[in-house]
């Protein structure tokens, strides 16, 4: 990969355009192979029997052997985990969007003259510098004491740990949005709540999309926090936890393990296929322009 990169930058001005384009495509196709290779292995292995894999790991399956999938779905409550993941992600993201924008709006419109808001801004910003591992150990005991080591607790933690980054992004973004419109609305007798809901939120939609995408992906895939908070009972697991447990319980049968990887990936891949345009634009709109 490195070599190709070198080659493509080495090309002198005189080189023909087509050759350069061809090299770029070769480079990209090699990258594509590197990205797709693990998927290829995962899919073919999931459809093979152990002896088929032992004979030739790389070959295409002779027939579509479905017992691995049957076993995975039988041994684990897959649909419960899927539902848990969806519920946790949706609820947490809704609250993150709602609460952090409210907070960021208040901060950005007041931090120039209100000591409280300025202090709050730096107080919340401080969280960016604190790695989760620094609070993880006491947090486990603390949530346990509060009887919050369940899905509700996990959602509260997701909101908490998303706050710093979201506030940082939002405050900077909202400050770049002129406040004239709101002022006018306020003069017209609109309440602050109304101005926030009707004027500010639509204006900051690009950044909302960014925060939505970042957090939805993060929460859907979160492992460590779920491991610490939800690991008491399989009924509350999310998909990453199911994945990790399945692997530790059944990996001496790696065909089944690969089937479980595939099953864990499928929902998010389907969602991605439908909303990829929004994911990519959501990520970039707010992030790049701020």
């Amino acid at each position: 990969m490195e070599q190709i990169t070198k080659n493509s930058t080495k090309i002198k001005k005189g080189t023909s355009y087509t050759l350069r384009t061809a090299l770029i495509y070769i480079f990209l196709i090699i990258g594509l192979i590197i990205i797709l290779f693990p998927f290829y292995i995962t899919i073919i292995t999931a459809f093979k029997t152990t002896s088929e894999s032992a004979a030739n790991f790389f070959a295409f399956p002779k027939s579509f052997y479905l017992d691995n999938f049957k076993a995975v779905l039988q041994k684990a409550n897959y649909f419960t985990y899927f539902f848990n993941s969806v519920a946790i992600t949706v609820v947490a993201v809704v609250f993150i969007l709602l609460l952090t924008t409210m907070c960021a709006y208040a901060i950005s419109r007041n931090m120039n003259h209100s000591k409280y808001h300025k202090a709050i801004y730096y107080y919340l910003l401080f969280g960016i510098f604190v790695p989760f591992q620094a609070v993880m150990v006491p947090l486990v005991k603390y949530t346990g004491d509060l009887r919050l080591n369940n899905q509700t607790g996990l959602v509260l933690l997701h909101i908490t740990f998303a706050a710093s980054q979201a506030i940082f992004l939002l405050v900077n973004y909202i400050r770049s949005v002129p406040s004239d419109l709101e002022s006018a609305a306020l003069i017209d007798g609109c309440t602050i709540q109304g101005a926030y809901w009707r004027i500010v939120l639509p204006l900051i939609r690009p950044m909302l999309m960014t925060i939505l995408v970042l957090n939805a992906m993060w929460i859907w895939n979160d492992f460590l926090m779920s491991l610490l908070i939800l690991n008491k009972s399989p009924n509350t697991w999310t998909i990453p936890l199911f994945q990790y447990n399945f692997k530790s319980q059944y990996t001496f049968d790696y065909n089944m393990a690969f089937a479980s990887y595939l099953v864990a990936m499928v929902p998010i891949m389907i969602i991605y296929a439908f909303v990829q345009r929004y994911i990519v634009s959501g990520l970039t709109q707010g992030a790049v322009k701020s």
Binding site: C103, A106, T160, A163
Partner: peptide
């Protein structure tokens, strides 16, 4: 209201962070 807007996040952050 402007203080109230910040409260949910500030409280959660103080409690769990």
């Amino acid at each position: 209201v402007m203080v109230g807007f910040t409260l949910p996040v500030v409280i959660l952050y103080s409690l769990f962070f």
